[in-house]
Nucleic acid binder design. Sequence first.
DNA 1: TGTACATCAGTGAACGCGCGTTCACTGATGTAC
DNA 2: TGTACATCAGTGAACGCGCGTTCACTGATGTAC
Lengths: 205, 205
Amino acid sequence: MPKRGYHHGNLRQALIDAALELIEVRGPMGFTLSEAAKQAGVTPAAVYRHFEGREDLIAEGALQGYEIFGDLMEYAYQNGQPSALEAFSATGRAYLAFARKYPGHYISMFESGISINRTPELAAAAARANGVLEKAATDLSQHIPAEKRPPAPMFSAHIWALSHGVVELFARNSPGRASPFPADDLLESGIGIYLRGLGLIEPDA
Amino acid sequence: MPKRGYHHGNLRQALIDAALELIEVRGPMGFTLSEAAKQAGVTPAAVYRHFEGREDLIAEGALQGYEIFGDLMEYAYQNGQPSALEAFSATGRAYLAFARKYPGHYISMFESGISINRTPELAAAAARANGVLEKAATDLSQHIPAEKRPPAPMFSAHIWALSHGVVELFARNSPGRASPFPADDLLESGIGIYLRGLGLIEPDA
DNA sequence: TGTACATCAGTGAACGCGCGTTCACTGATGTAC
DNA sequence: TGTACATCAGTGAACGCGCGTTCACTGATGTAC
C-alpha cells in the first residue's frame, strides 16, 4: 500500500473521482476528459496512461458504482433478515439512498449510455446488484398465495421502476420541477401501497 | 395557409422535426444544431432566422411535446369517463404510448435539462399535462374511504414515477438491459397492484 | 551508503475536427403602382 | 399585365473555441550492484 505513487499518488482514482463529480454536475454528455484531467491537476494526455479514452473512464466510474450499489443492496438485504418483508423494504430504501449519496455513479450507471455488456466485469457487477433485488422479491413472493402470485422478476421490476422514477423525477432536482413530497416519503408510501396490493401487509394497516 | 413559403416551405418546423429525430438517436447532449440544419437541407446559419440558438430549438421541441402530451392525456381522460377508474388507467396507458410514439419529444421534455420555467408557454403546457393526471387522481381518490385516503397529488406522483421508471428502464432500449417483460404489461400490472393496494379494485380480482 | 542505470508517469506541443455563432451578402418572393 | 422596388429567408465564409487523441520528450522514482 504505497503512501504516494510516482508523481501524483493515485492518479487513476483521482481521475475517476473527478469524472464522477463532473458527470454529476454537467450530465453524462457534458462531461469532458480534458476537464477531468484539469480537475485532477494533470494534462489531458496523462489520462491515457490509465485509461483507453473518454468512454473507458466513464465505464470505470459505472463499474465502481455497481460495486458500491451491490454492496449496499446486499447489506440492506442481510440486515432485514429474517423478515422477508423487512429485507425487501430495506433494499428499496437502499436504492434511493444510493442514488442520493452517489449521484455521479448513479448517472454513469443508468444515464450515460454505457452498455452493461461493455466488459465482463461490468456485466457481472450489474448482475450481482440486480440479483439482490430479485432475491429479495423471490423471498417475499413465498408469502403470497400461489394462485395470485405474480412472477418475482415482475414485481422486482415494478419496484425498480418505481424507485428509478422517483429518483429521476423527484430526488434529482429536475430544473423547475418541484417535488410535491420528499422523495423518501414518496417511495416509502408507494412501496407500502404496492405491497398492500400484493396482500403482503394488512389492508387497514 | 401557404403551400410553400419563401424558399424552403416550412423550415421552422422542419428544423424542429430534425432536432427531435437527432435527439432521439444521439441523446439530448449529442444533438447538434449544425447537424439538424444539415438534415433539414440548410446552412447552420439559417437556423438563426427562426430560433435564438441551440437551446431555443430544443425548448421548442419540448413545448410541442408537452402540447401533444397534454392532448393525449386529456383525450384519454375524457374517453375513460364516467368511470374514474377507467379514466385514470387510460391516462397511465397514454403516458406510455406517448413515450413510445414520440421518443424525441419525450427526451426533450424529461431528459434534456431544459427548464420547465424557461418560458411561460412551456410552463403552461407542462402544467396542463400534469393537471390532467392530477385531476384523474383526484376523481379516483373520491372512491377511497376518507380516513385511508392519501393525498391525490401523492398518488398521482406514484403513478407518474412508476410510468417514468418503466419507460426509462424497460421501454427505451437501455443498452444491454433486457426487459424481463413487455413494458405495457409491466406498467399495466404495476398500476393494477397499486390500485388494489388503495382498495380501489377487488382484492381477488 | 553511493553510483549508474532502467522504468515509466506525466508533459507540452501539435493535430484535425466539428461546434455555435456572426456577418455582409444575394437572390427569390411579394407588393405597389 | 408589366415594371420597379422592398422584403427577408437562406448563403457562404469566417471566427474563436475546446474537444479527444498522438507523440517524442523529460525527469522523478525505483532498483541493481
